[in-house]
Nucleic acid binder design. Structure first.
Lengths: 107, 107
DNA sequence: TAAATCAATAGCCAACGGGTTATGGATTCG
DNA sequence: CGAATCCATAACCCGTTGGCTATTGATTTA
């Protein structure tokens, strides 16, 4: 099915990448340098991971001078919620609340 | 963090594997042969994928004579719901209902 | 018992993914 | 202007992964 879905699931599969996304969710917008400082891998590695997250729609970037700020796009998680809902079968209504919230989160 | 979480996310990353799991969710218990018939890959490949899904806790197997029946373990998805909840930050209360349901589903 | 079927394992191979260092372009600072 | 900083890209390495065929063990069927 969805190419986007594939990007989403495989983007979240890597622990380092997931940690980056988690950090962005927890601490808000961060520069590449700040993320690199705690990532445990090199700056190019971080940049590459951020690229993958961006293509999956999980983050956005904002350029300011020579530095790039990244932030999480929480609404990108709704396809995941959607999929879980389909797998689970029933309970649509219970998920719908969350999905709406996610969609309203960033703009 | 969780080793189990890693297994879960990476198990769901592969499209073929996700399709197998989806089929088990949708159609219920299936033999390896039945799954192979529509998987588009060889029987050994299907067996290997099922092994990965099993180690991630996403499926269980039941041996009956010379054939093995696999079925989805829906409650294995709750860590995923859990994680999404954490990323979303707030709204725990809205998720709690679902999580309880998932946990009660199979045994 | 012999033949056939089912599924798991073994062994192999090509492709991919995540890591590194090196480099370059853009921007800020002295 | 020259030096330093920030980040992205390039080039490369190597371990992992997903696929295949061949085989084997177990069970059913003839």
């Amino acid at each position: 099915m969805g190419e986007a879905q594939d990007l989403l699931f495989s983007a979240l599969a890597d622990p380092t990448r997931r940690a980056l996304f988690e950090r962005l969710c927890l601490r808000g917008e961060q520069t590449v340098g700040a993320l690199t400082a705690e990532a445990g891998v090199s700056q190019p590695a971080v940049s590459k991971h951020l690229g993958v997250l961006k293509r999956a729609g999980l983050v956005r970037d904002r350029h300011e001078g020579r530095q790039t700020h990244y932030s999480a796009k929480l609404d990108a998680l709704s396809p995941l919620v959607d999929w879980t809902k389909q797998m689970s079968g029933f309970w649509e209504s219970r998920f719908d609340d969350l999905e709406d919230l996610l969609k309203r989160m960033d703009q």
